[in-house]
Write a protein that binds this DNA or RNA. Structure first.
Lengths: 229, 229
DNA sequence: TAATTTAATAAACACTGTATATTTACACTG
DNA sequence: CAGTGTAAATATACAGTGTTTATTAAATTA
């Protein structure tokens, strides 16, 4: 018997393969992800996976894009937990959602921000729609603040000309993206990413009663540094 | 012929293996590091490497420790480019050295801060002496500032009790480590790490004439946030 | 009903890290 | 100087990996 009857086929196998991949990534980490191990768990043979993904890298890319979408969704929810105009609360909402997602799915975070799979090269263009979704909430709130004339900017410097093409990609994707908004958003993102990634690696002690004190101090300091009043 | 005569042996093979590993990491990235590829390049067989490293993970650990030492050395030099008492310049010196090292050796940076090798588990205790060397310059400067009563601290929260053991490890290694110094140093480190790691992955546009503007703004903002006058 | 497409398996290839046994150059001891 | 022991390499083998090719049989379409 080579091809099983429809009744014995796994329905929606493409999704099931991804779910199994996530399960294994959670267990053994992204770098040790194995197509054959996925196949074993699903009781199919490894080449069967090639009917759904042209190679292992394509599977990884699909996982990354799904992760970005979920990551972005959490941040949109975090932002909208406070109404328009509540700049500080909306910004904090994004930061907290960002951190919560990373702590809920540490392997997904490292899949996105590490280079975890041997030989895998990040297909920036393919992933861009999903990755821009995950940065959009931050961009949008900083832009809200700027339009309300509440954005504090010290020492802004414009973008280098050589980098304009990549910058253009962002701008078209966002509709528009003011350079100052971009500048401040990058400062904020880097601070949140820095503390979250060090936390995930166990490099940061758990300050405060619930272990969140350092992160909250980071967020609070950004609010007073970048938002007027 | 099984064992070559002394004249044909590669002298200092342990070091040569590490150098070859670094060369290959620079070419194909840390996750794709291969003992057999190293052996091929050195014209020996793969099991010969086991005379110098018990397994692949031990080689990786040795590489990480060497990287940490070099990383720390650069930061010590950066700190000491300004004399004692010049708090802002010493802090900036560390930040710039941190970034320069990361841009000079991006793969080493990702080897340290990523989880790049399949199945590799970071041996925290073994690596600790080397990794603490790399954070010591920052700790020392923040402590200098605190002792000079120029350290600005808002919203400090003490370390959680459960985390005391790890904290104790740091404290004994450093001689002593004031909690407030630890708190502020972690905030600073996370901001520098965040921006540097996003830069290395190509997520940050190159602001300013030379592309350093965002990083310098980050450093400048830390100086005015944490140092009095 | 016949032809075609599709979804799987089977087998094989070139890799990988690593364990075991073997060989031989070198160092030490009587 | 002879003999022994150790050290540093090779040879071989095993289980695992991603991937390619050929084959089979179920499902779909003409």
């Amino acid at each position: 018997m080579v091809r099983p009857t429809l009744k014995k086929q796994i329905p929606n196998l493409q999704e099931v393969i991804k779910e199994t991949a996530w399960k294994q990534i959670a267990q053994v980490g992204a770098p040790a992800l194995s197509l054959r191990a996925i196949a074993r768990e699903l009781k199919i043979t490894a080449p069967a996976i090639y009917n759904y993904f042209p190679d292992r890298d394509a599977l990884v890319t699909a996982l990354i894009m799904d992760a970005y979408r979920s990551f972005g969704d959490w941040q949109f929810e975090g932002r909208d937990s406070a109404p328009l105009g509540e700049h500080a609360k909306r910004l904090k909402g994004i930061g907290v959602a960002y951190r919560n997602w990373a702590h809920e799915y540490p392997q997904r975070y490292q899949l996105i921000f590490g280079t975890p799979i041997p030989g895998y090269v990040y297909p920036a263009e393919t992933v861009f729609p999903a990755s821009s979704h995950a940065i959009t909430p931050l961009f949008s709130v900083v832009e809200e603040i700027r339009l309300a004339e509440k954005l504090i900017i010290k020492s802004f410097k414009p973008v280098k000309k050589e980098y304009e093409p990549h910058f253009e990609m962002w701008r078209t994707s966002m509709g528009s993206l003011h350079p100052q908004t971009h500048f401040v958003a990058m400062l904020i993102w880097s601070r949140v990413h820095g503390i979250v990634s060090l936390e995930l690696q166990g490099n940061i002690p758990l300050f405060g009663e619930d272990g969140h004190a350092l992160f909250l101090a980071q967020v609070q300091s950004m609010i007073s540094e970048f938002i007027k009043e």
